[in-house]
Computed example of a mutant assay.
Amino acid sequence: MSRVDAHQPPPARYGYAVAGAVAVLALLAAVAVLVVGIRSWTGDFPTLGRHFRAGESARLELRAGEPAVLYVSPDTATFDGRCTGEVAGSPITVTEAPDTFTFFSGGRTWAARYEIRAERGGSGQLTCVASTGTGAPLLAVGDRPDNPHLVRKLAGTVAAGACVAGLGLTLGGAIALAVRKRRRA
């Protein structure tokens, strides 16, 4: 059992304010970690080329064997159609996108719809024709999303924010308990 000096005054109540300030600062730091992490995460979204409408032709650059993705903005209309084109005189292959991926860019929602592949790399043309009655959706060709990387980055950001908040709240609570204990003694 520790002895308390009777001549020493108990800690002031401002110790509780210090504990509260530590907790609030930690929560603000956690929010900052989340904001910076999420901005970085959205910066890793696919890069889109020039937007075009169904029925128009679009220029595109493809690398041999590396897929690109045709994104559709569901904000404008649904797209169920057919796309054809060629790169360096060779036809391109257009198939359903193997993964679903939807993101925001330029104030619009974009959804992966088709995967585009070419046997040869270079510049080419892509023309997409919408089925009857689906309107003229806005389309764009872009990079293939790296879903595993995006999930890891988002999970890491959330975990870092939670750790900062948890540590700060724990430290603030420990300070408050220490002040309480000393004031009671």
Rank of each mutant, 00 (worst) to 15 (best):
residue 1 M to I: 08
residue 2 S to N: 10
residue 8 Q to E: 13
residue 9 P to Y: 10
residue 12 A to E: 12
residue 12 A to W: 03
residue 13 R to I: 12
residue 15 G to V: 06
residue 17 A to P: 01
residue 19 A to G: 15
residue 21 A to E: 10
residue 21 A to K: 03
residue 21 A to I: 12
residue 28 L to D: 03
residue 29 A to R: 07
residue 31 V to G: 12
residue 31 V to Y: 06
residue 31 V to F: 08
residue 31 V to S: 11
residue 34 L to D: 07
residue 35 V to G: 06
residue 43 G to R: 00
residue 47 T to G: 07
residue 50 R to S: 12
residue 54 A to T: 09
residue 54 A to G: 10
residue 55 G to L: 08
residue 55 G to F: 10
residue 56 E to W: 07
residue 58 A to G: 08
residue 61 E to A: 14
residue 64 A to W: 08
residue 64 A to S: 15
residue 69 V to W: 03
residue 72 V to T: 14
residue 73 S to C: 11
residue 73 S to N: 13
residue 75 D to P: 09
residue 76 T to D: 13
residue 77 A to S: 14
residue 79 F to C: 10
residue 80 D to R: 13
residue 81 G to K: 05
residue 82 R to S: 15
residue 87 V to M: 13
residue 88 A to T: 13
residue 92 I to T: 05
residue 93 T to W: 01
residue 97 A to R: 03
residue 100 T to K: 10
residue 101 F to A: 01
residue 102 T to F: 03
residue 103 F to H: 07
residue 105 S to Q: 14
residue 105 S to N: 11
residue 106 G to V: 08
residue 106 G to M: 05
residue 110 W to I: 05
residue 112 A to T: 04
residue 114 Y to L: 14
residue 115 E to I: 02
residue 116 I to M: 01
residue 117 R to V: 03
residue 117 R to P: 01
residue 118 A to W: 04
residue 121 G to K: 01
residue 121 G to T: 07
residue 123 S to E: 15
residue 124 G to W: 02
residue 129 V to W: 00
residue 130 A to K: 02
residue 130 A to N: 15
residue 132 T to D: 14
residue 134 T to M: 12
residue 139 L to W: 01
residue 147 N to I: 15
residue 147 N to E: 11
residue 148 P to V: 07
residue 148 P to W: 05
residue 149 H to P: 01
residue 150 L to S: 02
residue 154 L to G: 08
residue 155 A to P: 01
residue 156 G to W: 02
residue 157 T to I: 00
residue 158 V to I: 14
residue 158 V to S: 00
residue 159 A to M: 12
residue 159 A to C: 04
residue 159 A to S: 10
residue 161 G to M: 00
residue 161 G to S: 09
residue 162 A to T: 09
residue 169 L to H: 05
residue 169 L to M: 12
residue 169 L to I: 04
residue 174 A to C: 08
residue 176 A to G: 15
residue 177 L to T: 05
residue 177 L to Q: 09
residue 184 R to K: 14
